[in-house]
Design a binder for these strands. Structure first.
Lengths: 253, 253
DNA sequence: CATTTTTTGATCGTTTTTGCTCGTTTTACC
DNA sequence: GGTAAAACGAGCAAAAACGATCAAAAAATG
């Protein structure tokens, strides 16, 4: 394990959790705390992170990752959701996933797990490209400006060829009456396809999406098996979602 | 095990892991660390990697961050080639392009032009994603670790559905007798498909590729209409390529 | 087959990296 | 607000890696 390799691992860990602990890193990488502190110094020098007592935290999520993956509000919450999802995904699973920032957070945590990921989002594919364990299938299709998602008949046809253990759907709204929804028809169409091909459906969304309805409806709540969200979720809404038969996982932040 | 073969193996390892360890390579290739160090020196000289204490790391062609002043091999030349290609591509063209750093350089220069790009390289797609003018079609397929290319029957089928005005092919070797070639069979296969679907074929390659033959042959020279390269091209080789009916464009640097 | 050239492995002094210790600073807790 | 625990920075010695040099081995050449 050479220095640059450690740097890489530290940055990866940082992308996953947003905050890293010196002791933990020392154990994980098999070096002393002194070395970790020196590494963190070097990485701070290069602007990749900010030192804190006991560890370090990610610098403002603008440029912390390759290929300007769009980040946004509720980054901390999304990270927690991502970690929770990764912990729940079994080794070897075949996962279909849409684009979206919350899904991306989960994908970051899946690096290093041996799973098969089928996706129509090229930023998801890009994120997993360096991983040796993960097998990635890209649907193909016409690239939508800004959202990094592939749509159209090519995407549809490819998706139809796969059976998924799990569909990981990022949404812009989740509502008792109207189910899950998103902003554009093309994305909703892709999400619905994932759902029709999957054995189980997990929705990932930060708490701000609860109770909202976005213009393009994807599917009713009955199609969804599990919602992974953050502790900001309103207790009343949670109770009603659970009453509707949804398993709600609240990620500890 | 001869030197070139070791170079090949080292580059392979580097492509897979991004970072290599000297000791590990010595064991893997059955030679001493001194030899590995010399190999790494030679490869750094050619710009394929960056030496570090204990090993080396891949020069990431995307990494244009200020502190990593060192970029991939022949970057200046590739930029010049990219500019020349962009100037030659007519507005509205349908272009198929493979992956590879030289192609990427050209794609960067195509941003803002209203063209349709069909590609199996997700880094190419990523680069063009923010562009409002460019229309991007991604073939889909199975993602190759670290090379960002999609391969397999999905990619083949999608490519077969398009007619291209122009195929933009990045190669690792161009030779009078053996034609154009690349390092892996999968890439060669994809390149050959682009060629079969295209009206015209342009090869982009820096001068170091001239006269070389890589393991996986793509097509004979007769299939290629134009080579865009940099002024470093050997005059004798250029004369022979032109005698073989190839239009050689030398990009002013 | 002999000779020349290239390549490889080994050695040695030097530089970098790493882990440890010790006194100081920060954080957490009562 | 005071005290204990944890983390920090600096300095130092051991370990690992480096560059340079040289001789042996392998390959190419005539």
């Amino acid at each position: 394990m050479i220095k640059e390799e450690r740097f890489e691992r530290i940055r990866e860990e940082l992308a996953k959790k947003g905050i890293v602990d010196g002791d933990e890193l020392a154990g994980l990488l098999g070096v002393s705390r002194a070395t970790i502190r020196r590494d963190l110094d070097a990485l701070e020098e290069r602007g990749f992170l900010k030192r804190t007592h006991g560890g370090a935290q990610a610098t403002d999520p603008e440029d912390e990752l390759p290929f300007h993956s769009k980040v946004s509000a509720y980054m901390r919450e999304k990270r927690a959701i991502g970690l929770a999802v990764a912990a729940l995904v079994p080794e070897g699973a075949v996962i279909g996933c849409t684009g979206g920032t919350t899904v991306m957070a989960a994908i970051k945590c899946l690096k290093g797990k041996s799973v098969t990921v089928v996706t129509n989002a090229i930023n998801v594919a890009m994120e997993l490209a360096p991983s040796e364990q993960a097998q990635v299938i890209v649907t193909g299709g016409s690239l939508r400006t800004r959202s990094y998602e592939l749509v159209g008949h090519i995407a549809d046809r490819t998706l139809g060829e796969f059976h998924l253990d799990l569909a990981l759907i990022g949404v812009d709204g989740i509502d008792i009456e109207r189910g899950i929804s998103t902003y554009t028809i093309a994305e909703a169409h892709a999400a619905a396809l994932y759902i029709s091909q999957a054995e189980r459906v997990w929705v990932v969304a930060d708490h701000s999406k609860a109770g909202k309805v976005a213009p393009a409806l994807i599917a009713p709540l009955a199609k969804v098996h599990r919602l992974v969200t953050d502790p900001g979720l309103d207790a009343g809404i949670q109770a009603r979602l659970e009453a509707a038969g949804l398993e709600v996982i609240v990620a500890a932040s």
